[in-house]
């Protein structure tokens, strides 16, 4: 029982990070129809920038804000590049964003280094004991921050003018433009928002799992799997998707095989794509003829 509970807690912690990455995917996808394969690199960038800002002697809070801000700026930069692209076929865009991912990885190698880095836990090394299972303060922080971000985004999309405009764009870009919504603004916003969300995930996760220039690959792909599992058209589906993947992964690692834990997310994603391509929560098939 305690064991199961411990696995669930681990799964939830990681699951929330997948959820944050997955939400970033859906935010950009809904605003622009682009799948940004560099989403995982935003996570990496957040963590790495934070590490090096702290190492440069900048205090925690300013470093934190600066890391998020710089990553968001990176998002804007990627949008600017995407905007330059003349050919907008889906294949080209997929490869373009894969190019971003490789470029950012290469840049991290050069600007920072290839070493493994970690951060001191924000609330110290302490932990809670729940039903015999331990939960570090940092993991708790990951969950709390994720819940806050999800709630914030919910508020943003449902209650604010800009958020509603983003939803409108995803439903019908032409109609939205006719209503006076600036598509460019929405696109820039979606890229920076997705980058910012991911960077928070990266910063909070670093004390738990450490980070290096390559950490974004797997996180990005699993975040994508989370988004597919929950349904690409729905940011909150990605949260559920992320949590499901995180928990399943932890359970497989705990009870079956730790070697194959990385495959879990992709197996689930494939099953979803084969049998319910619109995501777990959809009523109808998508992208089928």
């Amino acid at each position: 029982m305690t064991e199961l509970f411990a696995f669930l807690l681990t799964g939830l912690t990681v699951g929330f990070v997948y959820a944050l990455v997955g939400m970033g995917f859906t935010v950009i996808y809904n605003a622009s129809g682009i799948i940004n394969f560099a989403q995982g690199e935003f996570v990496m960038a957040g963590g790495m920038i934070m590490v090096f800002l702290l190492a440069g002697g900048i205090p925690y809070l300013p470093a934190y804000l600066l890391a998020i801000g710089l990553t968001a700026l990176l998002g804007v930069l990627l949008w600017k590049l995407t905007d330059l692209s003349r050919d907008s076929s889906q294949e080209s865009l997929i490869i373009l964003t894969l190019g971003y991912a490789i470029f950012l990885r290469g840049a991290a190698e050069v600007v920072f280094d290839k070493e493994l880095h970690t951060l001191p836990p924000l609330l110290g090394e302490g932990h809670l004991t729940i039903l015999g299972a331990t939960l570090s303060y940092q993991a708790l922080l990951v969950m709390a921050a994720s819940v806050l971000i999800v709630a914030g985004l919910w508020f943003f999309f449902r209650r604010t003018r800009t958020g509603k405009a983003m939803i409108a764009v995803s439903l019908d870009p032409d109609a939205a433009r006719l209503m006076g919504i600036s598509l460019k603004k929405i696109w820039v916003l979606s890229f920076s928002l997705a980058a910012a969300i991911a960077s928070v995930g990266g910063i909070l996760l670093t004390p738990i799992t450490s980070t290096n220039y390559e950490v974004g690959i797997m996180l990005g792909l699993k975040g994508f799997a989370a988004a597919i599992t929950g349904g690409l058209s729905n940011p909150f589906g990605a949260v559920a998707g992320g949590l499901i993947l995180g928990i399943m992964e932890a359970l497989v690692a705990g009870y079956l095989s730790s070697e194959y834990k990385d495959a879990v997310a992709f197996v689930i994603m494939l099953l979803i794509l084969f049998f319910r391509p619109g995501g777990l929560f959809s009523h109808r098939g998508v992208q089928r003829v």
Binding site: L84, F103, L104, E109, V110
Partner: peptide, 21 residues
């Protein structure tokens, strides 16, 4: 050596933007 990944990524981006065909 150190710039290999960076340059590789930059080439992909450049080709997709300026020479998509």
């Amino acid at each position: 050596e150190d710039y290999q990944t960076l340059i590789y990524g930059a080439i992909i981006i450049g080709v997709m933007i300026f020479m998509p065909k």
